[in-house]
Computed example of a mutant assay.
Amino acid sequence: MKKQLSILSLAVLLLSMSSCATVFGGKVTDAQRTKPAAGQPSREIRTGALIADILLFLPGLAVDFATGAIYRP
């Protein structure tokens, strides 16, 4: 029973850390959600959140890019 509880708590912890920029990045602004128009500079990516997503839980990277939270405000 203790082993199952520890495995379950570890799984919950991993899922909660699944997308670092979404969880810890704060509120996502409109500038982060919209793609830049042609001729405008591209958006900068939060490198710390990118590295954390790659090291901790790779599918979280897709969540961060989908929500726009990976981009700097």
Rank of each mutant, 00 (worst) to 15 (best):
D30I: 13
T29G: 04
L10T: 12
G48T: 11
P41Y: 05
K27F: 11
Q4T: 03
I70R: 03
G25K: 02
F65M: 08
S19F: 04
L56R: 07
A38I: 15
A69V: 10
V23I: 15
Q32I: 12
I51H: 03
A38V: 15
C20H: 11
K2V: 10
F57M: 04
L15M: 10
A66F: 06
I51C: 12
T67K: 05
A49S: 15
T47K: 15
V23Q: 09
T22I: 04
G68T: 12
L56H: 07
E44V: 14
A52M: 07
L13C: 03
K2N: 09
K3Y: 04
T22N: 11
L61Q: 08
I70Y: 01
G60P: 07
P41L: 09
I70A: 03
V23M: 04
G60A: 02
F65R: 10
D64C: 06
Q32F: 06
P59W: 12
A69C: 06
K3S: 13
A11R: 06
I7C: 02
R46W: 11
A11Q: 01
S18W: 00
K27R: 15
A37V: 06
D53E: 01
P59D: 03
F57G: 13
G26T: 02
S16E: 00
S42T: 09
R46V: 08
I51P: 05
Q40Y: 08
G60K: 08
A31K: 04
T22A: 12
R46G: 14
D30E: 00
S42L: 13
M17T: 00
A69G: 02
R33C: 04
A37K: 07
S16K: 00
S18A: 13
T47F: 02
S16C: 08
D53F: 06
A38C: 05
S18D: 01
L56K: 07
T47M: 03
L14R: 01
P59H: 14
